[in-house]
Design a protein around this nucleic acid. Structure first.
Ligand SMILES: [Mn+2]
Ligand SMILES: [Mn+2]
Ligand SMILES: [Zn+2]
Ligand SMILES: [Zn+2]
Lengths: 138, 138
DNA sequence: GTAAAAATATTGACTTAGTCCATTTTTGAC
DNA sequence: GTCAAAAATGGACTAAGTCAATATTTTTAC
């Protein structure tokens, strides 16, 4: 991982213990919720306020350092794998989330057939299914 | 529209004033929120409880009569256009939501490149962009 | 048509995933 | 080191639902 301090400085952000810990936590739990991140940060630096977690995550997403995924029926998930337009496959039963490479590459992989005059910025793809573990249980 | 009474009966559901009104409301406001539906129902039959709205919508989605869309940062939306696997294009600025015909056949992106042993049931696609109105304002 | 059983609706408390805001603390620039 | 700007904290507040007990309506059986 890039040094969190430089990463923050490179994006014009002040370097705080909380932001550094949040960056480390996201690296440690990919596709973690704000709550997962908070727990991980607490175990690393002792304490952090809920608001600081949301602020750090929000700012870092804004700067393009992190990516936020908001699957239906789940709190938002965060990851630091960015810039490759990858997608997600989520288990409907247990919520397990895995990365799926975009079959087409790095450029936006989907083009709406008729765009109604909209300017399209992103095509978000979520695959829903059942993971191997949940499937054997059913 | 199919007669709401028969539609309910055909799916083994009891026919109640609330369910009929909810079906009419969804037909009247496609991509409406539970709240939109509730307002529409109230103007039609006088009153309905919040819970009855959620119950009716939930049951009808379960039976495949309605479809629920849950875009990031928005309450769930409901529609009665089902069975054609169409997608949605949403304006980031104002939330305007329009239908987009399914891209299957046009892109390889709808088939996960590597499915990690999951059984994939659905590929959900949401296009994010800016609608013509919001674009001229910017 | 009526009565009992089953399904549904109502009400109000409760929950989750956040946001808002006033105050305190930390950071970066000089 | 001083000071202004930025960030963190704590606590109240909100939106979008869910839960559970009770009341009402609908269906089924006669
Ligand atoms: Mn990912
Ligand atoms: Mn639609
Ligand atoms: Zn699973
Ligand atoms: Zn718009």
């Amino acid at each position: 991982m890039t040094d969190p301090g430089s990463l923050l400085r490179d994006h014009g952000l002040s370097v705080t213990a909380q932001r550094i810990a949040v960056l480390r936590a996201v690296a440690a739990c990919p596709h973690g919720t704000a709550d997962d991140i908070a727990e991980s940060v607490k175990s690393e630096i002792g304490s952090i306020s809920k608001q600081a977690v949301y602020n750090a995550l929000g700012t870092l997403v804004e700067k393009g350092v992190l990516r936020r995924i908001q699957p239906a029926g789940s709190p938002a998930l965060f990851e630091n794998r960015i810039g490759d337009n990858h997608h997600h496959l989520i288990c409907r039963a247990c919520g397990k989330t895995v990365d799926i490479d975009c079959a087409v590459g790095k450029t936006p992989c989907l083009h709406a057939s008729h765009h109604h005059g909209f300017h399209i910025e992103e095509a978000e793809v979520i695959y829903w299914g059942t993971c191997p573990e949940c499937r054997t249980q059913a």
